[in-house]
């Protein structure tokens, strides 16, 4: 924490020379660009689909490319190879795009026999996040969905417990800042109605 304020804070940072970042979202790009700023010589985004399917913002992809981040598309890591706890390389397999999956994007399928090794000394996983069960597990009456997110009314954020509301990523799974803000707003209105019996002023 506060590692970016070095030298005022001496939080240790893991710095890589040849860094692979796994994933195609904004967090993958943020990680790659941060690794560059920390002095990595070579940073590669490894993504199992192609550029067109990347969930990251177009502007961030362009910024990363301008800065020298490399992209290895249609590539899936299979094994991280190390020596004495240090990473030496990553074994990957090439992918090709098949039929569209439930997300509407074409599903990547491994190409048999296309395994290869990439020399890396640091691997950053940026393939998404899930609900942290810490709080929900202490509230037995709180209804969750099958992925562990809180089951809440999309219009109000009302949960299965009276007077308890929820919104943002803990309801929808990873989404955007503005969607979380929208949920916070809707819940504020619903809470106002509940507590005062009046329509919210805005």
């Amino acid at each position: 924490m506060k590692a970016y304020l070095f030298p005022q804070y001496d939080t240790p940072i893991k710095r890589g020379r040849r860094v692979a970042v796994i994933g195609g979202g904004n967090v993958a790009l943020d990680s790659a660009r941060t690794a560059l700023r920390l002095g990595a010589e070579e940073v590669t985004i490894v993504y199992r689909r192609s550029r067109a399917e990347m969930p990251a913002r177009a502007e961030e992809v362009a910024h990363a490319a301008e800065e020298g981040v490399r992209f290895k598309f249609l590539t899936l890591p299979q094994r991280i190879l190390g020596e004495k706890g240090w990473v030496r390389a990553m074994e990957c397999i090439r992918m090709e795009l098949g039929e569209p999956d439930e997300s509407g994007r074409r599903r990547p399928v491994p190409v048999p026999g296309s395994e290869f090794e990439m020399e890396v000394d640091l691997v950053i996983m940026a393939i998404g996040t899930r609900a942290n069960p810490l709080l929900p597990s202490t509230i037995p009456e709180l209804r969750l969905n099958r992925w562990g997110y809180i089951d809440a009314d999309p219009d109000t954020g009302q949960t299965s417990i009276p007077n308890v509301f929820a919104g943002g990523d803990i309801v929808t799974g990873s989404a955007t800042v503005i969607e979380a803000m929208g949920a916070g707003k809707r819940s504020a209105r619903a809470i106002h109605r509940l507590l005062t019996g009046e329509e919210p002023p805005f």
């Binding site: 996040t129 069960p133 990523d169 504020a188």
Partner: peptide, 10 residues
């Protein structure tokens, strides 16, 4: 009342 907005940080 309470509002839970703890994100998905795992």
């Amino acid at each position: 009342a309470a509002f839970i907005g703890i994100g998905a940080g795992l």
